[in-house]
Each structure stands twice: as structure tokens, then as C-alpha cells.
Write a protein that binds this DNA or RNA. Structure first.
Lengths: 200, 200
DNA sequence: GTAGAGCCTGGACAACTGTACCAGACGCCT
DNA sequence: AGGCGTCTGGTACAGTTGTCCAGGCTCTAC
């Protein structure tokens, strides 16, 4: 017996298929994923997709897993902060995060929200979605705490919901200068009001 | 020539099909809509769905139209307010609205967000989605103004995004006492902080 | 070289899809 | 009664889908 050179799980072709799947999801949504569409996008044969993944849902689940991993990484990047930052820097960081979310192939933003909705229906996606929410929440909590805002837990919770709602709106109708013309002013209002108006 | 007693557009069976379509959307998402599923749900023959609607997308579009009409009605109901209300009543009204959104067949909540995402992709849904956003925004603006909060436009914008984000989270992982245990406290924080901490 | 194990693919299959067609049933007017 | 639109259910059909499998390929061990 020999050790397989190409272990199924880390075969580069397998990765290509996953990437292609994400692209397909981004373009047409989770439900536009078909073996054929993915295979064509990845430039591999149809059977490859069923060879590397037990079923379509397995493929989708793993693709979403990958997406979440990246999204989580993105949150961490933008929220990892030194112990003390100013309110202005807090705002900058959240703005930078939102910007990253929509600048990256805007597709993925939509895909994230789609996953959340799908998770409301499909049991097997719940853990994934939950993991994602927690990572989000952790990041926000940490950065808010670093800024020394009063009642950081509530603040993080509120800020996060606001960001989610705003990004969802953007996903629906992408507009030109969303970040600077719309998002930053509102976020600034929200954060400064919270910083000044909240009893410690 | 006679005027048809049963104009196609207001035939009760037609309405049944639309209602059934909404139920199907609520249960399995927009993409789970098939002529056969709708026909079975409505208890009519397969051909009826193609008889009353030119195509599947026409059926879906009209169903979403109906959904939006109801959702808009719901917003109006909860935000129509006398010229002067207290901050507490503002909170109560928004809470009541959120409660209505999730208590009604929770399905519809998911369907609304799905529509928003779909609108980001499909041109033909944009007008629908835009109409919906505007109605939402109008309602929030009005009720916030009635409460005499400072900078009502910004407040409405922020509150609405927060509500959207929170409801989206609920759609993802419906939890027991969402409204009273989670939503109301956070909203109260947000509104009172805004009311007290914002320079007029 | 040869054998054989793992890797990959073309092609097939049954299931399901949107849509169209048709023969007839119902209700209403003359 | 007769006749004519309105409506209904059954069925057909072509296209797409997920999944499977038999066989071809490549590489290693001998």
C-alpha cells in the first residue's frame, strides 16, 4: 500500500471547485449552485464535483464554511485592537470593516445573508451560522471595550445590528458612495451619542 | 358582448393560488416555488397556476407584491401616531411592530429578507424592494418625529437599521422570548440614549 | 516491463421542472 | 333549449437536475 499523493481532502482541484462554488453563489445565490455550473466555472469535468464531494449539500456546506472562515478572519482583522483606542478610532475600525465587507466581491456579502436565511430553515446550517454570529459578536465586543465605551456589551450588540441592517440594505440596492456618504455619518452619530449620552 | 363575471384578476381561486404561493415561499424560500408545489398547497390542479399567471416569475412577482403590500400596511398601522407621543410610546410602537413582524407566520419575515437579497440580483424586483424600503422609512420617520426626538431623520435611519438587523438575526435563529428579553431592552437603550444624549 | 491501486471522466439514468395543449364542465345570456 | 365564454383537470414534452458507474488514465512497487 502506498500513501496517496493526492489525498482527497487537500487536492488542489478540490480547492478549485470550492472557490468556483463560492463564485457561483456570489453571482446567482445559493440556489443557483448546480454541479454543472460549478464544474464549468472551475473548468473541470462534471463528475469531479461529485467525486470530491459526497453530495451537493455537502459541497455547499463546505463552501459556506470556507466563506465564513474568511468573513470571520475579516472581522478579527478589523477588531483586533490595542487595549485603549479613541472613539474616533473605533468608528474608523467599524467603517473599515464595513468597507471590506462590501468591497470584496460584493457577492460574498449577499451570500452571507443568504446563508443566514437558509440557516433559519435548514437545521444542518445552524451550527455554521451560530459560529459566525459568535465570531462577529466577539469581535465587536472586543473593539467596543477597547474604546472604553459605557456598557460595552449592549453597545456591541446594538452597533452590530445596525451594521448588519445597513449592509443588508446595501446588498439590496448598492449605491455609489455608500460608506462615506451614508454609513460613516450615521455610525458616527450612533457611536458618539452612545459615548456621551450613556450613564457609565 | 358581456362583461365577464369572473374577471381573471379577481377570481377567488387566483387569490388562493397567491396565498398558497406565499405559504410555499415562507416554508422553503423563493426558489422552492414550483407550479406543482403551489398547486398542491392551494388544492388546485397544476394547470390552474399557469392559467392564472403567465409564467412562474409573474406568479412570484405578484406574490411578493402582495406580501409587500401587507408588510407596508403593518408598518403604517404601527407607526401612524398622533402628533405628540412620549419616548416610551415610541419604544412601545416599535416593539409592537417588531412583534407583529415575527408573530405573523414567521415565514413572511424570512420571505421579506429573501426578496431584498433577490432584488440585489434581479432587476425586475428592484422597484418592489425600493417601494418597500421607502414605506418602511416613511413610517419610521413619522413616528420618530411624533416623539419629538432630536434629528429625527438620522434617528429613524439608525433605528430602522437596528430593527432590520435584529429581525434578521431572529429569522436566522428564532429564540424563545426574543421581543421582551432581547429586543425591547436594547431598543430602549438605543432610543433613550438618543433622546437624552443628542444635541438638539 | 507488468500489475495494481488510486485518480479522474464521459456518459447515462431517473426524477423533476416550466409550459403548452386539449377535451370537457360549468355558468350565464338570449 | 341552445350556445358561448370562463374555467378545470389530465396529460404530454423538452429541458435541467443530482447522482451513479464502468472504464480509462497515471503513477508506484516490484
Amino acid at each position: 500500500m502506498r500513501t496517496p499523493v493526492n489525498s482527497k481532502r487537500q487536492n488542489p482541484r478540490r480547492q478549485d471547485i470550492l472557490e468556483a462554488t463560492l463564485r457561483v453563489i456570489g453571482e446567482g445565490g445559493v440556489n443557483s449552485v448546480t454541479h454543472r455550473a460549478v464544474a464549468e466555472e472551475a473548468g473541470v469535468s462534471l463528475a469531479s464535483t461529485t467525486y470530491y464531494f459526497d453530495s451537493k449539500s455537502a459541497l455547499i456546506e463546505e463552501a459556506l464554511d470556507l466563506m465564513i472562515a474568511r468573513s470571520t478572519e475579516c472581522v478579527r482583522e478589523h477588531t483586533a485592537a490595542p487595549p485603549k483606542i479613541s472613539t474616533e478610532e473605533l468608528i474608523d475600525r467599524i467603517v473599515a470593516f464595513a468597507d471590506a465587507q462590501i468591497s470584496d466581491p460584493q457577492a460574498f456579502l449577499t451570500a452571507q445573508y443568504e446563508l443566514m436565511l437558509e440557516a433559519g430553515r435548514e437545521e444542518y446550517l445552524r451550527p455554521l451560522a451560530r459560529r459566525w454570529t459568535i465570531a462577529y459578536m466577539d469581535g465587536f465586543s472586543q473593539v467596543v471595550e477597547s474604546a472604553g465605551l459605557p456598557r460595552p456589551k449592549e453597545a456591541a450588540e446594538i452597533f452590530m445590528k445596525f451594521v448588519e441592517g445597513a449592509l443588508l440594505d446595501y446588498a439590496m440596492t448598492p449605491t455609489g458612495d455608500f460608506i462615506e456618504a451614508y454609513f460613516r455619518p450615521l455610525l458616527t452619530d450612533l457611536v458618539t451619542v452612545w459615548a456621551k449620552g450613556t450613564p457609565g
